[in-house]
Design a protein around this nucleic acid. Sequence first.
DNA 1: CCAAGCAGCGCC
DNA 2: AAACGGCGCTGATTGG
Length: 637
Amino acid sequence: MLGSGLIKLKTLRNEGLANEPIALESQSMLKNMGISYSVIKSPKEIGSVVDQLLKENTAFGLDIETYPLREFVQDTDGGIAPRKSAIRLIQIYDGKAHVYVFDLKKIGSISQIPTALWERPLIAHNALFEMKHLLHSGIVLKKLGCSLLADRVINGNRTRLKKECGLLSSASLKNLSKEMLGLDIDKEMQTSDWSEDTLTEIQIEYAALDAVLPIKLFQKQREVLSKKRLIKSYELLRDAQLAIAYMENSGIGFDISNHRELIEDLKKKSEVLLLEIYELLGVSFNLNSSKQFGEWLSDILDENELARWVKTNSGKLSTSTPTLKQNENRHEAFAKIVQYRQLTKRISSFGEGLYKFIDIPSKRLFGSFSLGTTSTGRMASRQPNMQNMPRSDFRQLFIPKEGYRLISLDYSQQELRVAALITQDKALLHIYEAGGDVHANTAAALLNIPKESVSKPQRQLAKAVIFGLLYGQGAKGLANYAKQQYGVDMTEEEAERHRGALFRTYQGLRAWQKQTGSLAKLTGTASTPSGRIRDFRRELEGYKFTAALNLPIQGAAAEITLRAMIRFTPFLSEECHLVNVIHDELLLEVIESQTSTYASLAQEAMEKAFLDIFPNAKTYLKGLVEANIGQNWGELK
DNA sequence: CCAAGCAGCGCC
DNA sequence: AAACGGCGCTGATTGG
């Protein structure tokens, strides 16, 4: 029935008969659900309409339609990025039988709509979109639920599920409507021109339906969330939306001219270096091609070397930096190739590609963040990824605006501290309670020396060993990791000895690993303190021991950071912007005169956030948060 | 021509 | 018995 309606509609539209009274997609669906709609086109209608709405005590469905501002019609994110967009329609579904479609072009200003409406519980699909646009218009939605986030909590990231799960591979409104409501909706109108003076009935009906669907979806999702005890986990994501909306809308100050200079400089250096490398190699090939590099390697290495050479997952000769460093004496070009790679990495991943995310007039870089897309509950960032900006010689390009400062607040040893609390390892807990240096204590225990006499390299060694252990590494992995990450040379035998010593030092940690590992294997799942579940049975690779051990720890850490964002949200304003979040670090841009005030407020929020996840951890907060204030991101610690 | 998977590498 | 966790972006390659 629905399918044939669709075909009919398309045919008629092609013949220019769209105004004929036919069974339209969205209209017939609304009718079938017993839902009517009305369009509000003048300020004087608003009062009575909103009075009517506010009588209902249900959650309302919310959707908006936007169009690009004239100067941004060519931009790919025109109509998407709030600063490049205007809101045309705001659709509110009363949760029962009517959708109110507010036509802002006719009403004049969004401020005509009483603020009481925005204080009601609302639900949208991909609600961050609505939240950002309304925030840009001065409206703060504090109670906005999201059917997309609910799906992520229930089903995880659909792109990573194996097909046999029988779920559609994205959680779009269309897909979820089909899957959960049996409705085949047409999204053709989504990209129609919402700036026209007169919108068609088809457009209005489409718009109205999109405010209804999130409510219908969420009614079902709420049951599942409740049954699987996922409410808390969902609410964590829901409540973190506002901080992200603020952050994405504010962007971060970026020193464009110095960046341009830096990249030009890197380009010149890389060209020189490339010639030097070709000279040393005696041949020239594309150094970015692991295939060509591998072929060259197989020519120069003898059988013995070939046998011992590190291989990639698919069995080819590895040409990675760790491999080259490990064999740095084998060929004098290797060191230069490592340098060259670093230069070209900067140029390709952090060079001109960034410019399309920069707003020239404000000199700010805009990235986006996602909630609930990772298997542990960490946030992710893309377009561009704001969480992997190079540390050395790059972060100084991120700057505050005139009269402001950047404040970095980071959780000190966030994951290790979390591990102590989750595993309840007595020795680790004791160190944190005393405010001691975990790595020095570990080194002392490992090497059987007094902790006062631990040297810097010994501390580095301990650091490598404990993080290795935390990740469930074996001796071989540990030896590589120690060399790579901390520059510590260690034979496999030494690594094995250190592992043993560490297991004896932190027996609680070891016991927890065994228990958690076997439970995860048994159930095929692992979970975080807030109840987020990772279901390995639905993933392509299935159960993974080390991932199962990591999930509660990385997940708990992520939950703490989300709680910190949530707790700090009320302090965000023109005086204080949240400009980046990098897993265990919040980056703020604060008006110069108030830096210490906001630093304290943020620190307090972060401490309380830690206690939100570990309520009994009051005695383990010593040295939890470190704050640094400065003129650019690079100089902060 | 595009899509997908791989290798490599930036970050926590 | 052993076990390196979580991301996103770019460039080269391959296959359709």
